[in-house]
Design a protein around this nucleic acid. Structure first.
Lengths: 248, 248
DNA sequence: GCACTGTCTTAACATACTTAAAGTCGCGTC
DNA sequence: GACGCGACTTTAAGTATGTTAAGACAGTGC
């Protein structure tokens, strides 16, 4: 089917991501790759991979594309509670619960692997390093969620958006999606608003401010962080909560 | 040391809490009780059980008292990211990470059990029902954290505080800490402010509003929810995210 | 008995952010 | 080529919430 090179490339983000949390064994990597190839799927922008209330039957690993987890209130207000990036896993372990309490929607075209609960349990059981990396990933997601609470609860708009940009930057690094401080940035201002608990109008204003301060360039779905240090300072950003191994 | 009756009572909240998530086996309960009795500890109000940056070496199970998880920004702003109630476990699995990314502080006198990492792993390994209940608890904590993000990001002050009260009510039920709709409520208005991302003054204003609407009575550290239905409605509260088994 | 401290309360004022509305630009469709 | 649509932008007006300040009250220590 696929030439071997390509197969390797496909699973790369997941392997890199997990490896950044916990050294994976050779055997674990092989098993992981196999499981991923067996469950390949695609989704289109705007499509929901899972919706609030759905039964939880499988784990998903993102190979390419951006997604978001979100919840909606009865009256339509929406809050994005996290972004899901290539290499991330959705709901490892969540299968212990019965129904999804939030939705996961694709922001761009997405390729991912869906691994059935039983196959996933088998995978975890057969290699300890993979299992631990997965648990780690889950724990880091919790940590990110806590930081989002802080971000929305205690930072003002400018800091808040700066912080989000710093986080995304930091998370894109280990999966090699930053080139010269630039990355694809498919998030609309409306998404940004729903993620930060602000209104679109104010997000727009705030982005202008970040631009005119010379901290970022954001144009044509491309984000360039021109002064990372100052951006981090204005965001009161510390990467500790991401728990990623320091890279030389 | 302890009379048997008392020993049983001590571990009750933890057992009830876990049982509400996953049916525990007899054997599991016994092991759990034993582990808890071996690690008994106390903390005084204001004391931190763990602080941001601390190495993670043990799991803690709360037997009595209220605590909060919180993070502080460099300039002193504080955000409480969750309350920890009797029966809750702190950081099951977090031991996979190396350092705490937040602090846990006691709001009242607290009794808890600290279980060393190795003993905890042994406990999980020796009874599957306990292990699964623990993972469940961790997943539910994530779900709560997501809902907090929604709460702070998209609900206005009145809804926000109402929602928090509903959540606490719902979480206190399975550990039997609600009597006739009333419970001990040791949270100061400042804590409430730090938990909801509001200012103390506005929390005060908002509480007055809830009081004068006849939804709650809050006096002398005691909270009575006088109209739970309406309180839930004004909070846009749905308990689904708590993933607790329905109780007849 | 008095000072001290923490919690709650109220007031007056300031402002960060929201809402509403309308206009621009680029892009795909018919 | 006109139209519709989504994303972005800008303006103006409104408001929810923050800030500052000061007082009441209870509990605690001396």
């Amino acid at each position: 089917m696929h030439p071997p090179m390509l197969e390797g490339t496909l699973a790369q983000p997941v392997i890199r991501r997990l490896n950044a949390l916990r050294q994976l064994s050779e055997r674990g990597i092989a098993l992981l790759q196999q499981a991923i190839l067996e469950g390949l799927q695609r989704a289109r922008p705007g499509e929901d991979l899972v919706s609030e209330g759905d039964p939880i039957d499988s784990v998903r690993m993102i190979l390419s594309g951006w997604l978001c987890r979100y919840k909606t209130l009865e009256d339509g207000r929406r809050q994005i509670v996290n972004f899901v990036l290539p290499g991330d896993c959705c709901d490892a372990c969540v299968y212990l619960l019965t129904a999804m309490d939030h939705s996961i929607g694709a922001l761009t075209p997405v390729t991912y692997a869906a691994i059935k609960r039983s196959a996933f349990e088998q995978l975890l059981a057969s290699d300890r390093s993979v299992a631990e990396a997965m648990w780690c990933e889950t724990m880091v997601n919790s940590a990110i969620q806590r930081e989002w609470t802080v971000n929305i609860g205690r930072r003002v708009a400018l800091e808040r958006i700066a912080h989000l940009l710093c986080e995304l930057h930091e998370r894109l690094l280990p999966v090699d999606m930053i080139e010269d401080g630039s990355c694809l940035f498919p998030i609309t201002q409306m998404d940004l608003a729903d993620a930060t608990g602000l209104s679109v109008v104010h997000v727009n204003r705030t982005l202008q401010e970040l631009r005119s301060s010379g901290l970022i360039v954001l144009r044509d779905r491309t984000l360039t962080i021109t002064d990372l240090k100052v951006l981090k300072d204005t965001a009161l950003f510390s990467a500790d909560y991401l728990h990623t191994k320091r890279r030389g």
